[in-house]
């Protein structure tokens, strides 16, 4: 290994220095932000600089809310609209657990600002149902046991729905690609695959 600019290469002593500033310094100096002078999700009567008004359609119903700009779509759905079928798993858009449809396309709602969904049509797992009746994709997931613990399932089902919206008769490769953003730690993948294929076959 070549000798890399020595002064900058790591040593345990200067690590202490580096990390100390990042943890204590930055944290202590973080400004107290004005939004916390009011309750989160409580709709302020008076106009506020830090809140944004937002209208969108969720599961076919128009929703108008005042939110902090940093609110994610998943937080809006779960905390404010109480649509807890949408799960937050990694909160970084890295697992697909929070997948909902935005204008017919799959998006990670935990990694999308709610404000960026303004004016759009959002469909969540709850919106796939007709009353208490399951959607054919949901039925397929039961029939083919496309789940174990079930926590990633709403996201898997919504990703499957996005595939079928794009192409009601998708190829196996299209399904594999469409489902590739949805992690399942129980690894029920073979049955998830069967479930989506079965749901697609109903369209054939």
């Amino acid at each position: 290994m070549k000798d890399k600019s020595k002064s900058r290469v790591f040593s345990r002593r200067n690590f202490v220095k580096g990390i100390g500033t990042s943890v204590i310094g930055t944290y202590a100096a973080a400004p107290v932000l004005s939004k916390f002078s009011m309750k989160i999700f409580e709709e302020a009567e008076t106009e506020s600089k830090t809140k944004e008004s937002l209208s969108l359609h969720v599961n076919g119903k128009k929703v108008s809310v005042l939110i902090e700009p940093e609110t994610t779509l998943a937080e809006l759905l779960r905390n404010k609209l109480k649509l807890t079928g949408t799960k937050i798993i990694c909160n970084q858009g890295e697992c697909g657990g929070c997948t909902v449809l935005m204008n017919g396309k799959a998006v990670s709602s935990c990694h999308l600002l709610a404000i960026d969904a303004a004016g759009s049509e959002i469909i969540t797992i709850e919106g796939l149902m007709s009353g208490e009746k399951l959607h054919p994709i949901q039925e397929a997931f039961i029939e083919h046991d496309g789940l174990q613990c079930g926590f990633c399932t709403p996201g898997q089902v919504m990703a499957a729905q996005a595939i079928l919206i794009k192409n009601p008769k998708p190829s196996k490769d299209e399904i594999l690609q469409g489902m590739s953003g949805n992690l399942c730690r129980c690894a029920a993948y073979p049955n998830i695959m069967k479930s989506v294929i079965a749901a697609a076959d109903k369209n054939k």
Binding site: T84, T124, I125, M129, L134, I142, E143, T153
Partner: peptide, 20 residues
């Protein structure tokens, strides 16, 4: 088929994470 399948595919299954 799992008897808890309906709850899990419909999103109505309440996990601790969903307790409100």
């Amino acid at each position: 088929s799992r008897i808890d399948g309906y709850d899990k595919v419909s999103g109505t299954a309440k996990y601790t994470f969903d307790v409100d």
